[in-house]
């Protein structure tokens, strides 16, 4: 199979699997979430895996990586490379404040049958018209929108980069995002197209799942204002995820939109 196609199918499986338990998890893990000094750098791993945070399945594609600097402008990743199981890149934190690192994927998935064979396609709205051959049967098109994020602060945190785009599921930290401490409740707001996402389940799983026998998933429910609170039982990197679907696909061929949001958050000891 063509390498690029395989990549997109793996990606599709990781980000579009609906509300049911997700087999593969996509994530980014920065080498530090709080840095200081004259010229701090972080290095970031990005992968799709079963175990958190061990790259054991597929590298996360970096084409859709967007780094927002503390002044709200985008910053460029450096030394980016994609291996078999893991992508890596560096970020030079030349500004003081909070950086948002995001893998933003929006697109369309199609499944159809052609001459008795099942086919899959991924692309954008402009390509859709010509992508599906005449004679295709059982065509099912779904829109998808996903964000995989993590955050790094150089010096004192600020909120400029945290400003939501208003598209898809997004997380707005209420009580800090690189400031999390074990045992202290942390509050966030989940937004859907910029408006509070009420009644969504949010789950959080600490990393190092390989070294324990249970996932130890924590869950929270967003309130009417989209807010939810998590209290971290111990320090570590946590994978925080929420998913939903609606009918705002944006193209007439698709009736459904699948949305997911993932953040990797670091919790430090008190």
């Amino acid at each position: 199979m063509h390498k690029r196609t395989l990549k997109w199918i793996v990606l599709a499986a990781a980000i579009a699997t609906p509300l049911a338990a997700q087999a593969h998890k996509m994530w980014m893990v920065p080498s530090a979430t709080n840095v200081a000094g004259a010229d701090p750098w972080v290095t970031v791993d990005a992968a799709i895996s079963n175990d958190l945070f061990f790259p054991d399945h597929h590298a996360a594609p970096l084409e859709q990586l967007v780094i927002t600097a503390p002044d709200g402008q985008t910053a460029k990743p450096q030394n980016a490379a994609t291996g078999k199981y893991r992508s890596v890149f560096d970020v030079e934190l030349s500004q003081q404040g909070t950086y948002k690192l995001a893998l933003v994927n929006r697109g369309l998935f199609a499944r159809y049958e052609l001459n008795g064979q099942k086919k899959r396609w991924r692309g954008d709205a402009a390509e859709l018209a010509t992508a599906i051959p005449a004679g295709a049967k059982d065509v099912e098109v779904t829109a998808s929108s996903s964000r995989v994020e993590t955050f790094v602060t150089n010096g004192k945190p600020n909120a400029t980069a945290l400003k939501p785009s208003g598209q898809g599921l997004e997380l707005l930290p209420v009580s800090g995002v690189t400031d999390l401490v074990e045992g202290e409740p942390a509050t966030f707001q989940l937004l859907l197209d910029g408006k509070p996402a009420a009644g969504l389940k949010v789950s959080a799983i600490a990393g190092a799942t390989r070294y324990r026998n249970a996932q130890e998933e924590m869950t929270a429910q967003t309130g009417a204002d989209g807010r939810f609170t998590l209290t971290w039982p111990h320090p570590g990197m946590y994978w925080v995820n929420a998913a939903t679907q609606d009918d705002k696909a944006g193209v007439k061929q698709a009736s459904k939109r699948r949305l997911s949001y993932t953040a990797t958050l670091e919790v430090l000891p008190e």
Binding site: V35, A36, G37, D39
Partner: peptide, 11 residues
């Protein structure tokens, strides 16, 4: 130092 007079490890 290039990393800022020891301030790198203050966090």
């Amino acid at each position: 130092s290039k990393e800022g007079a020891g301030t790198k490890w203050l966090p």
